[in-house]
Design a protein around this nucleic acid. Structure first.
Lengths: 269, 269
DNA sequence: GCAAATTTGTTCGTATGTATT
DNA sequence: CAATACATACGAACAAATTTG
C-alpha cells in the first residue's frame, strides 16, 4: 500500500470527474455515503475531498453537499493593441469592444476617484518622489455578470492642475483618458510597459471575485506604465484578474489576426 | 466566538511571521508545543498549520518540523525583445544574457529532440492538419541552480526536409534557431503572438520544479506562435514557468529602459 | 551502521456546531 | 421546526521520515 487511503479515494473520484462520469455541476455522494462506499472513516473521506478541493476539482457547500467544479469560460484580453493612437488592450472602450466581439456581455462600474500620495512602489514606477499627489481612478469590470477584473490608474495631480480637470471627476471619460490627455494637454502616449506577476488574492479581491478564502485561485497583477513622447511616465495602471477566468495575448511585430481562439470558442453548454 | 479556533491560531502565527518575530527559514514550535501554547488538540493545531501552508506562509517537512517559507527572488523575463532580427525574450542566448545581466547564473539543459504528430491544439496553433509530422525540441532552464522553466518548440518536419537538418539534431544551435532558419532556408521571422495562461502543474512539472504536489503553486503556460514573412506560422514554442519565481515584461511602442526593477534588485540576504 | 528519540503523516471514533432545505 | 450535510474539535493510535546518540 504505497499511497495513503485518502489519496486513493481522491484518485478514484478524480477519474470519475475527468472521465465525465461525474459531470460538472453534479453532486458527489455525501460524506456518509462515500464512507460506506470506500469503507473508510468520515474523516478520511473528508481528507480526500479536501485534496480535490485544493486541486479545484470540486467545491463544498455547507448544508448542501460537494459538487464538481464548473469550468469557467476564460476571457482572452489582447494587451498589445494600438500603442500609439489609443489605449492598450483591456482598457476603456477597447474592453467593451473586445468582449462584445466574443459574443459576451461586458459591464463597467462607474469610475471612482480618489486622492492619494505616492508611496514606495507607486512612486518608483511613476518615477516621481514619494509623497507626490496622485489622482486614482478605480474601475471594476464584468463579463456576463461575473466579475473579471479590478483596475486602478494613477495620474500625477500635476496633470489636473495643468488643465485635465476631468481626471479628478468621477465617472467615465467618453473618449478615454489617453485621448483626453492628448486633446487637453497635448500629451501623447507613445508606448507602455506591462509587468506581469501572479500572487495570492487579498481579502478585498477574494470577496469581490467570490474566490475561496484560502487563496487557492491566484491573481494576475499587471502593472502598466505608459510613457509620453519625452519617455516620461504619464500614468500607472494596475489591473488584477483572477487567473481562473483570464488569459492574455501579446502581439509582437507583424502577426496575422487569430483565426482560432480555442478558449474563446467554448460556449457554455 | 465568530471564528473557529484553528483560524485564530493561524492568524496569531501569521502575525508573528509577518512581523518578523518568526523569521523566514526559521522553525515553528512543534505541533505538540503549539498544542500546549494554544490549549488545543493536536489536530486543531494541524488545521491551523494546513491553513498557513495553503497560503504559502509555511512549509512542513516530515520528521523535521514546520518552517517559515523563504521568499523566492523572482526573475523577470522580457518577452518582447527584438521581434525582427532575432528571438523574443526568454529564448536561447537571450536567456543567458538577461540572467547574467541580473548578476545571476543561468544554465541550459542540452536540447532534446523528439518526433511527434500534430494533435488538436498543437495543429490548430501551427495551422497545420492534424497528424502533420513535427520536430520537438525540449529544453530546461535554471537560474542559480534552481529550475525556472521548461520549454518545447514545435517545428513542421517540412523545414527539415527543405534543408534545416540541424533542427532534428540534439544539442543547441549556436546562432539560435531563428537565425539558423534564416541562413539555411531564408525564412524570416517577422513577429510572434504570445498567449499567456495560468494553470495547475502536472506531475512532471511538480516533480521537476519541486513544487508541492497539491497544486498550490500555479504555472504560467506561454504559447508563442512565430510567423514568417508570409504570415504563416513557422514554429510554436510552449514554455511553462512556476508563478512563484517568474514575472514578465512586455514593452509596447517606444519605452525607455527600466531604470528600476524592484523584483530584480532584491539580492538574497 | 544501528537504535532511539523526535516530528510530522494517516486513520479511526466520537461529539457538537452551523448552514441549507 | 426538523432533517440533512458539511465544519470544527477532541482524543488516541500507529506509520513514516529524519536527526541524534
Amino acid at each position: 500500500m504505497a499511497n495513503p487511503m485518502y489519496r486513493q479515494i481522491a484518485e478514484d473520484l478524480r477519474e470519475q470527474i475527468e472521465s465525465g462520469a461525474l459531470a460538472p455541476g453534479s453532486q458527489l455522494p455525501t460524506e456518509l455515503e462515500l464512507r460506506e462506499q470506500y469503507n473508510a472513516s468520515r474523516n478520511t473521506v473528508r481528507d480526500a475531498i479536501k485534496w480535490l478541493t485544493s486541486l479545484d476539482l470540486v467545491e463544498t457547500r455547507p448544508g448542501q453537499g460537494t459538487f464538481v467544479t464548473e469550468p469557467r469560460t476564460p476571457f482572452v484580453t489582447t494587451l498589445s493593441d494600438d500603442p500609439l493612437t489609443g489605449l492598450g488592450g483591456g482598457e476603456g472602450n477597447l474592453f467593451l469592444a473586445e468582449v462584445s466581439a466574443a459574443h459576451r456581455k461586458p459591464d463597467n462600474s462607474p469610475v471612482q476617484v480618489e486622492m492619494q500620495n505616492a508611496t514606495g512602489e507607486t512612486a518608483a514606477r511613476l518615477r516621481v518622489p514619494e509623497g507626490t499627489e496622485l489622482v486614482l481612478r478605480h474601475e471594476r469590470r464584468f463579463i456576463d455578470g461575473t466579475p473579471y477584473s479590478m483596475q486602478t490608474s494613477y495620474y500625477p495631480m500635476d496633470l489636473v492642475e495643468r488643465g485635465a480637470k476631468d481626471l479628478q471627476r468621477a465617472g467615465n471619460i467618453k473618449q478615454g483618458t489617453v485621448e483626453y490627455l492628448r486633446e487637453v494637454l497635448g500629451i501623447k502616449q507613445v508606448g507602455y510597459r506591462d509587468w506581469i506577476t501572479v500572487r495570492a488574492p487579498n481579502a478585498t479581491e477574494a470577496d469581490f471575485f467570490k474566490l475561496p478564502s484560502d487563496g487557492r485561485v491566484a491573481m494576475y497583477e499587471v502593472f502598466r506604465t505608459a510613457f509620453d513622447g519625452n519617455q516620461v511616465p504619464m500614468r500607472l495602471t494596475v489591473t488584477v484578474y483572477p487567473t481562473d477566468r483570464n488569459q492574455f495575448i501579446f502581439n509582437i511585430g507583424t502577426v496575422p489576426p487569430p483565426h482560432n481562439a480555442p478558449a474563446q470558442e467554448d460556449e457554455p453548454t
